[in-house]
């Protein structure tokens, strides 16, 4: 079963060149899928198309077998959550107030969160392992903790699908590991996870399924073991690459400095 399916989707930013040139994609349910590709491959654009924030120029995106347009904003936010890249907030919220924003899809225009929403927000914080930070101000958190708080906000939406844009970028090694562990745990709780990354090893360490993108096209898609091979990666990144096994998982290593 696929949670999201993409058929022949094309997209160009207004007045710009084509960013996505006929994308086909199936997102397997309850698995971690990594959307891997070099900078500028069109990963973020695809993510925002899946979210419904951008409209494809042609082609169709179906969410749980129905076209995106069939869902109201609120209904969609209960199914799909987003963790944007490097989110900045202008005003200084506490961590719990920030996570409670994830409850908006369950509240009317004039409603504010109730005690039951706070319980769900706290569970979300516990789930990503930062329950103890609830009362802290968002701006006092480290980059990694902040990213986890943003994931908690998306989890407070109680989504079936979680989309993350470069969740491990700008994180140190230990926070990267912790974040990827959280993603893997979520899939264990039957959440479908899709994250973009330009780092093959972030994909290699947790993804079940890999979509390799370059220049607005899907180069390859399938189970990690099939797609993560030296030949495809070398071609996509334009540099010699080998894939070795390390502690039972594939590991990607660059063999030379980039050509040209």
């Amino acid at each position: 079963m696929s949670a999201l399916s993409v058929r022949q989707v094309r997209y160009a930013y207004p007045g710009g060149p084509e960013r996505l040139a006929g994308i086909d994609l199936e997102l397997p349910e309850g698995q971690v899928t990594a959307l891997l590709g070099p900078n500028g491959a069109g990963k973020t654009t695809l993510l925002y198309l899946l979210l419904g924030w951008l409209q494809p120029a042609s082609g169709q995106i179906r969410l749980e077998q129905q076209p995106l347009a069939a869902f109201s904003r609120r209904a969609m936010a209960r199914i799909m959550g987003l963790v944007p890249q490097q989110e900045r907030t202008v005003f200084e919220f506490s961590v719990s107030d920030f996570v409670l924003l994830g409850r908006a899809a369950y509240l009317g225009l004039t409603e504010a969160p109730l005690g039951s929403d706070l319980t769900i927000a706290r569970q979300a914080l516990e789930e990503v392992g930062i329950g103890h930070l609830e009362r802290r101000m968002l701006s006092t958190l480290s980059g990694g903790e902040r990213q986890l708080a943003t994931i908690a906000r998306a989890l407070a939406q109680q989504p079936h699908i979680l989309l993350l844009d470069e969740p491990t970028a700008h994180l140190d090694l230990s926070h990267q590991g912790r974040l990827l562990q959280v993603l893997s745990d979520l899939a264990g709780h039957s959440v479908t996870v899709l994250f973009t990354t330009h780092d093959p090893n972030a994909a290699a360490s947790v993804a079940d399924y890999l979509v390799l993108m370059a220049q607005g096209q899907v180069k390859a898609a399938g189970p990690l073991s099939e797609v993560l091979n030296a030949e495809l990666l070398s071609e996509t990144y334009g540099v010699g690459i080998e894939v070795i096994r390390l502690a039972g998982r594939p590991y990607v290593r660059r063999l030379e400095w980039p050509r040209g």
Partner: peptide, 17 residues
């Protein structure tokens, strides 16, 4: 309360419903 949501980036607010 919704003013908090509107103080976020537009695409993020959109993703929250």
């Amino acid at each position: 309360w919704r003013l908090n949501l509107l103080s976020l980036d537009d695409a993020t607010a959109f993703s929250l419903g």
